[in-house]
Design a protein around this nucleic acid. Structure first.
Lengths: 144, 144
DNA sequence: CTTAAACAGGACAAAATTGTCCGAATTAAT
DNA sequence: ATTAATTCGGACAATTTTGTCCTGTTTAAG
């Protein structure tokens, strides 16, 4: 469904949000360990998230990643997915047709529409705060 | 959402169904041209569909691919997807956790459940016959 | 000022996916 | 029998995705 990069990005963002919520800044090393991802690859993804204003990166000793507390609740899953995988998940044709629209649909166009719509709604209505709280409360997990 | 291989596989199956419905057998060359796919790559995919008993392949001159008429309506999209991409789309975790279940869910487990369920229902309730008829009637297209 | 901890980013490497080529086997038609 | 049309399948190649490494830069702390 999502690329590995996107999976790591979502998990990293959730972990950073969780820690930022508690006033802590986290290092790449920490993140990779807690979400069980390859460190250097995760670094690249965090750069993307930083460039898309989803996380703040602070250089130097005692540096790391954080998200401003007041922003956590306003960052939707959709924003993260879009930053990493782009919008193909919303707009692309399910069968890869170059031109696939209402008046030139692929065979599964209408069948897919509702699934895609549901996915879109889900991504747009889910924010980092609730996901971080799920981890904090032990209701959900970031690895294994 | 689906791999390229799966996209080609679905389109190929629809085209073969359409022609079989009209009593015609089709060649690889024909298929690739009509669904706008790379010929040799499509050949590999058709082999998979044949091994999974979704299409019949007939060797030799005047050979080609076909689907027994009476089977067309009973072949669900899900069967094709499963033959090519496997079942990861149904059972895999949205965030790539090795172990993701009701009592050890990833952060988006429950949010994803409904989307995945909708996708599954869609794939299981859509069969080749209706897709082929959509092409036949001009209601949908296999390329561009 | 020096050092150590951290991120940035370019170059590289590995793996997976996508795609190509070609010889072998099969079969219908002549 | 020979030929031509066709699929099969193995080996290979290109591309994309995933992942690693190393050097440089920034910054806090001693």
């Amino acid at each position: 469904m999502f690329s590995k990069a996107c999976e790591y990005g979502i998990k990293a963002a959730i972990f950073i949000a969780l820690k930022s919520y508690q006033g802590e800044r986290v290092s790449l090393k920490d993140i990779a360990a807690k979400i069980d991802s390859p460190e250097a690859f995760t670094a690249k993804i965090l750069q993307k998230l930083a460039k898309n204003d989803i996380v703040d990166s602070i250089k130097g000793a005692a540096g790391g990643f954080e998200i401003e507390k007041h922003k956590i609740a306003s960052i939707q899953l959709a924003k993260i997915v879009d930053a990493i995988d782009g919008d193909s998940i919303y707009i692309g044709c399910g069968l890869g047709l170059n031109k696939c629209s209402e008046d030139h649909p692929c065979p599964v166009h209408h069948k897919f529409a509702s699934v895609r719509e549901e996915l879109k709604k889900m991504l747009e209505s889910t924010n980092l705060e609730e996901l971080a709280l799920g981890i904090k409360s032990g209701a959900s997990y970031l690895k294994t």
